[in-house]
Amino acid sequence: MTRLVLGRLLRVVITLTAVVLITFLLTTVAYNDPARLIAPDNATEETLASIRATFGLDQPWWVQLWRYAVVGPPIQGVATGLLNVPPSLGYSYVSQRPVTDLILEKLPATASLALGAFVLWMLVAVVLGVLAARRPGGPLDRITSVIAYTTLSVPVFVVAVLLIFVLYFQLSLAGIHLFPSGGYVPFSESPGEWARHLILPWTALVLVQFGPFQRIVRSSVLEVTGKDYIRTATAKGLGPGRVYFDHALSGAANPILTLGGIELASLMGGAIVTEQIFGIDGIGRLAVRAASTGDAPVVIGVTLVGAVFFVLITTLVDLVTHARGGR
């Protein structure tokens, strides 16, 4: 177990290093003069040159990378690099604020969206997947299969816009104001409003994501229903509910956990389209804004945070599936 943990940690470090390196190089290539972002519009060449000198933007890329990772931006005269504790992700060129603060501000909205949608679609997918596996080829299996492939082939923005059209626009016209059209209310302010604002985006994500997942649950469960230990469960006198939702699901859980972890991890990096459509000010929107303005430190920071979530969640799933025993 210790060996496994150490090995995984080493992989995490290597992955994250690679992510920093690649995004750093890409942003240096894509955005060739951040000095203009920082300077006022009418700045002279001298001003630009002095900004470049202050931020080290005139240095070769490896020196810049070194400063980013170890020294940190020299704005307040304190070392604040990535490798410090707590790590600093630099300063936004555009808003002149620490990237770490920007991301921490947006994290609750993205996490609420991602975790809520994840819990909902896992529940839906697992229940429908196990029920479909009980009678493969039966009515429920066929219906869920059609729904799964239909929703899978409709892009999330279509689903989202349709949801807004029907459940917000049409209902509002009829004088019923069940759901807001968008926005985000922090949980700490009002749990009720928080949920009310998130229901439509959650539904959009669940509709798009549960289909393939339900098929995976179905096939994983189907794979174990012929196993001897399922017959043992029946021979103990257990009812079909326990046999399927406990014994079969637990036997089939490893692939489901692994794929679920990957899906959750990629959502934690920001659900870009969904956040845009529902006006949720999360990490996804932050990333889009930064990428379109050329705000390189924010782009690197958001990518890195997404990568950290990804490796942490997938590593956690690996350790959990390992700790579950079996083989």
Binding site: K227, D228, Y229, H247, G251, G325
Partner: peptide, 11 residues
């Protein structure tokens, strides 16, 4: 049953 390795739940 015959093979206890496959008849007991592995997890």
């Amino acid at each position: 049953f015959q093979d206890p390795a496959s008849n007991l739940h592995p997890f």
